[in-house]
């Protein structure tokens, strides 16, 4: 018996969401009295053994370069095989784009109940109860997994990464990798940018910004705070900002530590994508904007006057000239 954690990586580096998944899996292993093991497909430049400091004892690897790109069919087959050999009864992955591509297939193959988007450690004293977000962030539900093998995909930025002592044993698995069913023709990745779904701080602009030419201060503020930029649906629909920045019910759902909304009124559909943020700051000239009801801090006023002052105050705090 063990908890098996899927470790995802990009550009040779372990993803932050995977470190969260490792810590979550390790805590769950401790809670249920079994070892925590990892599985990593493809190649990374990091020293895998050092991941032991997050509480993981073994890491199974299949170091074939072709697996550096998402190949859902192969991933599902290999993870299932390793889950079988190490007797995994719980599989943990992140509810990211990769997790979304593979977790349902794993559930079918392993006949394992799946809860996607978990927000806390399961309650295991009686049964196996996992808390997750439902109604697009407007509520939580507790789901009981009834199968012997269980799969949990963890929401990003809900479980803290903690380091301790230890090193992990690396086990190179000799599992043949078949030809891909899906051919990857091209990949475009934004390098160096902070991923919206992983960002701890997000600065977001809405229609109140009046036009794409006014995004300079939002980008500057985001850069100063090491934040990602986001926008509301009308902004993405008008083409002011790319669609992959649209947060809300029909866009991306995020849960940063700090969400700064500038010129966004806070329609219920927008709130659905951001109300899991730990702290919300709203800057809007309309004191009746519904967003203020969901905010922790707010400024009623003209964003174009407030932003320059806000930026210079942050610069002062950070010691940037």
């Amino acid at each position: 018996m063990s908890v098996l954690i899927f470790i995802d990586h990009s550009e040779g580096k372990i993803k932050k969401t995977s470190l969260e998944a490792i810590c979550y899996g390790a805590a769950l292993a401790k809670q249920t009295g079994v070892p925590a093991e990892g599985i990593l497909l493809g190649t990374v430049s990091e020293d895998l053994g050092s991941l032991g400091k997050y509480g993981i004892q073994k890491i199974h690897t299949v170091s074939q370069e072709s697996l550096n790109q998402l190949d859902a069919e192969q991933y599902i087959r290999i993870i299932s095989t390793v889950a079988g050999t190490c007797g995994a009864t719980i599989i943990v992955l992140s509810h990211t784009n990769t997790g979304r591509a593979i977790s349902p297939g794993l559930s079918v193959r392993l006949k394992a109940g799946l809860v996607t988007g978990a927000t806390a450690l399961p309650e295991t004293s009686a049964g196996f109860l996992v808390k997750k977000n439902v109604f697009s962030g407007k509520a939580f539900c507790t789901v009981s997994i009834k199968t012997d093998t269980k799969i949990i995909s963890l929401n990003p930025n809900v479980f803290p990464v903690k380091t301790g002592e230890g090193s992990a044993e690396i086990i190179a698995e000799n599992i043949p990798v078949g030809p891909p069913v899906v051919t990857i023709k091209s990949v475009s990745k934004a390098t160096g940018e902070i991923l919206l779904t992983e960002a701890e701080i997000v600065v977001s602009g809405g229609r109140g910004m009046k036009g794409p030419e006014n995004w300079g201060p939002i980008e500057e503020l985001a850069k100063l705070l090491h934040a990602a930029t986001a926008c509301s649906r009308p902004v993405a629909d008008a083409g002011w900002r790319p669609h992959n920045e649209h947060v809300g019910q029909t866009g991306i759902a995020i849960a940063p530590n700090l969400y700064i909304a500038i010129g966004i009124s806070g329609a219920i559909q927008h709130l659905a994508g951001v109300n899991r943020s730990k702290v919300i700051v709203v800057i809007n000239k309309d004191p009746e904007a519904p967003f203020f009801k969901s905010a922790d801090y707010g400024i009623v006023g003209d964003a174009f006057e407030i932003l320059p002052k806000l930026i210079s105050a942050v610069k002062k705090l950070k010691g940037v000239a």
Binding site: L70, I184, K185, S186, V187, S188, L195
Partner: peptide
């Protein structure tokens, strides 16, 4: 995909 997009066939 994580951090970007892919064209696949």
């Amino acid at each position: 995909i994580e951090g970007g997009e892919e064209t696949v066939s």
